Simulated scan of single mutants.
Amino acid sequence: MLLLSPPRSALDRRRFLTGAAGMAAVLGATACGGTDDPAPAGGATRTIEGAFGPVEVPVAPQRVVSTDFYTPWALLDVGYTVVGTVQANVGGVLPEYRPAYEAMTRIGTPAEVDLEALAALQPDLVLGTLVPDLPVDLHDRLSAVAPTLLFEAAREPGTWQERAVRAADVIGRGADAEALRAEYEQQAADLGVRYADVLGRTRFALVRGGAQGNALVDLPASWSGVVLEAVGARLGSVAEGRPGVFEPLSFEELGRLEDCDVVLHLVDTTGEVDDNTQRLLDQPTFQALPAARGGRVFPLPNYYVSHYRQAQAVLDRLDTVLAGL
């Protein structure tokens, strides 16, 4: 279960009140896109560069449909609800966003979009990400329904910050996203100052189980790796300063994590451990690690960070862990 620290500072109180107000707006959003912004006169548009070149998009889109399961959360962060989206794993959805997600119409999966369901929503903009293995003609088929802006796939998952701000900017809420970015960065900086002594003497590992019966040690540019980096947390020698997303280790190689004082492992947002990660945690070589013997192995909900409110949930979890070290 995700443990949230109570608001302590004036910044924390502002974030708590802002988040509560934002969620009230999200849950009260109408089916026309969850925005009270008036439609621009004369159908005004602006040009935004996408993966397939420039796209003319509405200045204030009212009915947005998303073909990925990243964009909806970034837009909920700024109080905007898409009318439709693809099927997501509920265990990856921030718990307070689940009611809003359940109210969205499903339009299939990123690779198999139901164009009939999409068209029935009468979108004025389709937003998505050009992830691998999409049908080569998907952009053309989507564009036949409504203006379609697909972002290039991120080279590294830790670049979720830029994607979140860009998605908000497309719907005219870039300033809100920038304010949220600043709030997140300030919270991270505050944690870094408050726990400077602990961070100076502690090394962390981010781990999950691999499908090949191995361990995946996530690197600084990973989903949560960038959040730890923002706080000033140091990763163990297996990961520190390494490019890429993860380093695979066989179970026999887990001794390479011996210099990690704390291990944070994957769980979903409900606190459930997947089978691969549980297999890793049960290994004698994992149980022999100093962090495991010392009771410093902690589940990390929201491990796969994709938007700012989720990153702030990771910061809250880190606050709880650091306070106990």
Rank of each mutant, 00 (worst) to 15 (best):
L254V: 12
G19W: 12
A51C: 07
A25F: 01
V90W: 02
R279Y: 05
P7R: 03
N276G: 10
S9E: 01
D114Y: 00
P301H: 14
L4T: 14
R141W: 05
A179F: 08
R14S: 14
G28Q: 11
G158K: 00
Q312K: 13
Y303G: 11
Y303M: 02
L75E: 02
A311R: 08
L322V: 06
G174S: 12
P40M: 11
A292Y: 08
D274C: 10
Q122F: 01
D176F: 12
T202F: 02
D176I: 02
V55D: 08
F298C: 08
G236M: 07
A146N: 07
A189R: 15
P301M: 13
A292Q: 04
A233T: 12
G42W: 01
L94Q: 13
L4E: 15
D77M: 02
P132L: 05
L76F: 15
R141I: 00
T202M: 03
D261N: 09
F251Y: 11
R234E: 02
A164R: 08
G232W: 06
V64I: 08
A239P: 10
R8S: 14
L75C: 06
A20L: 15
M1D: 10
L264T: 08
Q187S: 15
P38A: 13
L125T: 00
P58Q: 01
R141V: 00
E240Q: 06
